[in-house]
Design a protein around this nucleic acid. Structure first.
Length: 760
DNA sequence: GCCAACGTTGGC
DNA sequence: GCCAACGTTGGC
């Protein structure tokens, strides 16, 4: 841009050494006009102007229907003089779009917004606006939008507009009405509408000069202009958006130069312009024309007609935008723009694994729904695995699809049947399994399904049983929850529960498989977590945390099948050091989320699933564990250790004090008193010395206490800094070696594996 | 309040 | 014009 501008300026200088306009485009325009004025060669002016105008007009016209980007491209493509190139947004702008848009977000600047959006916004939000002063507002908005994309471009443009305005008069004489209209438009808008607004700010300089030069334009018109001119107005604009403000300020400096040029021309031109009332006459009459133009604009159609001079709009638009927005609708365009711009990103944090994922899994329901995967495109949603972990609405809602790739398939099978098409019932839990059956008797079954669903929900929400509630709450949104439900109500439908349990478990395992690339789910865990833990541990219960009741609020959202799949190994290895104690459960699943969100969550689903796959009922109750749990409750455990009985059944021992080095450590005792120690959701490798110092089974309170005391003498390995993980400007993340000891003597910072990590 | 369906928008 | 997917609608 700058280069171009410089070029433009250079060219201008060559053209007219006298004038020095910061913006190339402006300069060019000025030059041309001046030449016209001075030389008076109508041809010259006409030719030059037309080129200018023509493109501009095209732009405007096209602008309405065409996206800004396209518009820009056109210009560039055309044999437009250098001036044009300068003016329009260079393809660069287009290319830079994304960057610009982002910049806009951050800075508050508007990303380029296709006119469509503006329109839409206008239509949606403020048809009224358009109606009232309708025309003027919309136009300014549009142009501003265009310009906003590239602030620089905007600035130049606006000056141009000013210069053009000043000089337009002469040009106008030569040129047809459109020229006059253009200038008037800008002025009019500022005067009439923005009047109060900031317009004064930007236009201020120009207008003042104009006024002075014009002196007696038309009575009616002048006053407004002066108001405009009043510097006081400028301050107002600032309120709105700094961006606009900055732009204005930028312009101001430029103006002076242009002013000089413009002033001279303006003086001469102004009177003429004044005659351009409405659309009919010359439009240059900034003041007069303004009144007329205003009227015309007020009439709507004329506004659009007059638009031919897009250039003006651009100039003023920015101002208008700024002004209007500031004064009238702070939220107005920019807000809308921002809003719209943000709208798209609302669902993405841009940072989580899901957001960073580029490819579709091709297995989830959403993927299956996509035409490219042979789907019907009825859902039109992003791949489950790409649904932002934090921003997506889907999280927690549809675990079903998430969990199983397989589910979708069934769905498909089911869909064809759809009578319900219009609106299938909530199939949430049952969907896949049942749908097929539903076909036989749609409503009946549907009703049943609904009932079932309700029932489930009821259970889940109301939670008849603690455990149920517990698991339920945590997993509510997840499919897994269902399995839990089954546990609660085996009676509901034997088949369903079974199916759910088995299927889901199966599915989950499948996913694990896929993720782990052939490794069984368990294998995965072992490998991933690096925990050789005994298989029994795997089926463990979710660590609910400190409270017997499910703590995991965040968990619900987290535990998606997706997460599991996504996390897989990589993430596991990437697990941050220092994450708060959470659940040990199934590392793979939880780990992902952990990183980002909840540490507290429980283990999720997968665990339960596994356990469920086995036989829940039995698992839920274990005399031995209950007795041990009771005994622990009657014993004074090491400081801040708390025993929690959770589903699985699993007896969890948690260190509640964040000050403890064991804050992230959990001891889980399962059936048979086998125990597993996990640190920050990662199982402590069986080869760890801790296991060798204690019996394989913690059958007594003494054993438990002994282990806890031993643990209190340990600390958590801090891992090592991975400098290869990301760009230098991003925060460094500590990573642990795959076989990290996790627990090390308190006086040490790293385990031997992390001290000399072997990077694959 | 959930969620399937689908209109709509933005990017290309 | 196509694709991706966001946001809304409306049945439940």
């Amino acid at each position: 841009m700058t280069d171009e501008l410089n070029r433009a300026s250079a060219e201008q200088e060559t053209m007219q050494p006298e004038e020095t306009v910061p913006v190339g485009a402006d300069v060019v325009t000025v030059i041309e006009y001046n030449a016209v004025e001075n030389s008076e060669p109508a041809k010259v002016t006409v030719e030059l102007l037309p080129e200018w105008l023509m493109p501009m007009e095209e732009e405007e016209y096209g602008g309405e229907g065409v996206k800004s980007s396209e518009w820009i491209t056109r210009k560039t493509n055309n044999n437009v003089p250098k001036v044009k190139r300068r003016r329009g947004r260079p393809p660069i702008a287009r290319n830079a779009r994304h960057g610009l848009t982002r910049l806009d977000f951050k800075k508050g600047l508007h990303a380029d917004r296709p006119k469509k959006t503006v329109r839409n916004l206008l239509e949606r939000t403020g048809s009224s606006l358009t109606s009232a002063t309708a025309i003027p507002i919309p136009d300014p908005i549009r142009t501003p939008e265009v310009s906003p994309q590239t602030p620089q471009s905007i600035i130049p443009i606006s000056p141009i507009g000013d210069s053009s305005l000043s000089k337009i008069p002469g040009a106008e004489f030569h040129s047809p009405s459109h020229l006059t209209r253009v200038s008037p438009l800008s002025i009019d808008k500022s005067a009439t509408r923005n009047f109060i607004h900031s317009p004064a700010v930007k236009v201020g300089n120009v207008t003042q000069q104009i006024v002075s030069s014009i002196g007696p334009g038309k009575d009616g018109t002048e006053p407004p202009l002066r108001l405009w001119l009043c510097p006081s107005l400028e301050p107002i604009s600032p309120t709105k958006s700094q961006d606009t403000f900055s732009e204005q300020t930028v312009r101001l400096p430029e103006f002076p130069e242009t002013r000089h040029n413009g002033t001279v021309t303006l003086k001469e031109s102004l009177p003429f312009l004044s005659k351009c009332e409405s659309c009919g006459s010359p439009f240059s009459a900034h003041k007069i024309g303004d009144t007329l133009c205003y009227r015309c604009y007020g009439t709507k159609p004329e506004k659009k007609h007059s638009p031919p001079n897009i250039v003006f709009r651009k100039k003023q638009h920015p101002k208008f935008k700024k002004i209007v927005k500031t004064d009238f609708v702070p939220d107005g365009d920019e807000d809308e723009d921002d809003w719209a711009a943000k709208k798209r990103n609302r669902r993405m944090c841009q940072q989580c694994v899901a957001c960073l994922r580029e490819d579709d899994c091709g297995k989830c329901d959403f993927c299956m729904d996509k035409p490219k995967f042979g789907g019907s495109n009825t859902k039109r949603q992003k791949c489950r695995l790409r649904q932002c972990k934090f921003q997506s609405k889907l999280h927690g809602h549809r675990a079903n699809g998430m969990l199983n790739p397989s589910l979708p398939q069934r769905k498909k099978n089911v869909k064809p049947k759809l009578k319900r098409r219009g609106r299938p019932r909530k199939r949430k839990f049952k969907r896949d399994p049942w749908e097929d059956d539903d076909e036989v008797s749609d409503k009946d079954e549907d009703d049943e399904d609904d009932d079932d669903l309700r029932h489930y929900k009821m259970n889940g929400r109301k939670g008849g049983r603690r455990k149920w509630n517990y698991t339920f709450k945590e997993d509510e949104e997840d499919v897994f929850v269902e399995t839990v439900i089954d546990d609660e109500e085996p009676s509901i439908t034997e088949e369903d529960p079974d199916i759910l349990g088995s299927e889901r478990s199966v599915m989950v395992s499948n996913e694990m498989y896929s993720n782990t690339s052939g490794l069984s789910a368990q294998g995965l865990y072992y490998n991933v977590s690096g925990v050789p833990a005994a298989p029994h541990m795997l089926g463990s219960v979710p660590l609910c945390n400190n409270n017997p009741l499910p703590m995991g609020e965040g968990i619900s959202s987290l535990p998606m099948g997706d997460d599991v799949t996504q996390n897989g190994f990589l993430q596991i290895e990437m697990v941050r050091v220092g994450s708060p104690p959470s659940h040990y459960t199934e590392e793979a699943q939880s780990t992902e989320q952990h990183v980002s969100e909840s540490q507290l969550e429980s283990t999720p689903v997968i665990t339960q699933i596994f356990s469920l796959a086995g036989r829940e009922n039995d698992c839920d109750r274990d005399q031995g564990l209950m007795e041990l749990f009771t005994s622990l409750g009657q014993t004074v455990l090491p400081a801040h250790w708390v025993g929690v009985m959770s589903k699985g059944p699993v007896l969890q021992l948690l260190q509640c004090s964040k000050l403890s080095t064991m804050a992230d450590t959990v001891v889980q005792i399962e059936k048979g008193f086998f125990y597993q120690v996990s640190v920050q959701n990662q199982p402590l490798l069986l080869m760890h010395a801790v296991y060798s110092r204690h019996p394989t089974c913690l059958e007594s309170v003494d054993d438990v206490v002994s282990l806890l005391l031993d643990l209190e003498g340990l600390g958590v390995c801090q891992g090592y800094q991975n400098f290869h993980m990301g760009p230098p400007w991003e925060p460094r993340m500590s990573v642990r070696a795959a076989l990290c000891d996790l627990l090390i003597p308190k006086d040490e910072e790293q385990c031997p594996k992390c001290t000399q990590p072997v990077e694959s």
